[in-house]
């Protein structure tokens, strides 16, 4: 599984950072920063899906 994060769509709701700090950090303005650029570790796949399913701006997708 891979995460596709659209920084331009992010408005800093911080839902992903709250749900999965292992996958997303936030910058000093509160916009999400994707921490995992390659394959999502298997044990974090559920959390990656949660991040995608809870982003109000549809800025996160998971693939594979």
């Amino acid at each position: 599984m891979k995460i596709i994060y659209d920084r331009d769509a992010c408005q800093g709701h911080n839902r992903c950072y709250q749900l999965a700090p292992e996958l997303f950090d936030v910058d000093e303005e509160g916009y999400a920063v994707l921490l995992v650029t390659g394959e999502v570790p298997a044990e974090l796949e559920e959390k990656a899906k949660l991040c995608a399913d809870n982003c109000p701006e549809f800025a996160i997708e998971v693939e594979g």
């Binding site: 408005q11 800093g12 709701h13 911080n14 949660l50 399913d53 809870n54 109000p56 701006e57």
Partner: peptide, 20 residues
Amino acid sequence: RARNRHSAFGLGIHRCLGSN
């Protein structure tokens, strides 16, 4: 609820500044 893209803090460029 596991899928919850609520808009309580608005949507777009005016997302509530104080949401956190």
